[in-house]
């Protein structure tokens, strides 16, 4: 089975969009997870609910919301356009942004779980040994929550490969620009005689998902060993 250049393009674009979306959401998600797990402030429950919105709202609605905010007429999109000449709608970057918003809660959840499962006694011990806040975070907290970060990253990447609704609504379905794997499969099914294309791309999707899961498993085992849990 060989893929046509157009099909390859969709695969590579999917990987690129998913990768960029993770890069975009990883740090803010770790910060948000920290805030939700350790922070004590009014409105925490409300913030928690807002973070999880993309999981429960239809993806098309998220895409529409992004269009309102980041569209050329939108309050943020307008500023980006006039100040930096950056346009997000109908671009690969826009697709990555839409994917990042969708996968943000997935990373937050995984990281937060690992943070809440982390024994605060280790950080207290580091503190008595003379480690300040940033030092403690980098040498103790971050390594100990890395399995959660890894799990969140892999899940977000895998989910990002398949993001459909938000991407097609915000970034549209432009081959080579925003037409990721699921969008290409959708287009193929809408084209007469496209069944084989759809089947080939579906198989690619399937293989990528399996490979991702296996990679996550291997990495997770190695990490557990590094953390001395085995």
């Amino acid at each position: 089975m060989t893929l046509s250049p157009e099909e390859w393009q969709a695969v590579v674009l999917s990987l690129s969009v998913a990768g960029r979306s993770v890069l975009l959401s990883l740090l803010p998600a770790i910060g948000m997870a920290w805030l939700l797990a350790r922070g004590r402030f009014p409105g925490r429950t409300l913030l928690d609910a807002c973070v999880h919105l993309p999981l429960v709202v239809p993806p098309v609605v998220v895409g529409w919301g992004l269009l309102m905010l980041f569209g050329i007429q939108g309050p943020i999109g307008g500023l980006l356009q006039s100040w930096f000449g950056v346009r997000l709608v109908f671009t690969t970057e826009g697709a990555a942004l839409a994917t990042a918003v969708m996968s943000f809660p997935l990373i937050v959840r995984a990281v937060r779980l690992s943070l809440e499962g982390l024994d605060a006694g280790y950080e207290a011990a580091a503190q008595t040994l003379g480690a300040g806040p940033l030092d403690r975070f980098l040498t103790i907290t971050l390594p100990l929550m890395s399995p959660g970060i890894l799990a969140g990253t892999v899940t977000a990447f895998a989910a990002g490969l398949g993001e459909f609704g938000a991407v097609i609504t915000f970034a549209s379905n432009i081959p080579g620009e925003t037409q990721t794997l699921p969008l290409a499969i959708y287009s193929a099914t809408q084209t007469p005689g496209g069944e084989w294309v759809a089947a080939r791309l579906a198989l690619v999707s399937f293989s990528l998902a399996i490979a991702g899961l296996l990679l996550a498993e291997v990495l997770s085992r190695r990490m557990q060993r590094l953390l001395g849990r085995v």
């Binding site: 006694g121 011990a125 103790i140």
Partner: peptide, 9 residues
């Protein structure tokens, strides 16, 4: 500490 709290990693 009673539970040693050695850094596992």
């Amino acid at each position: 500490f009673q539970d040693a709290r050695l850094f596992p990693h």
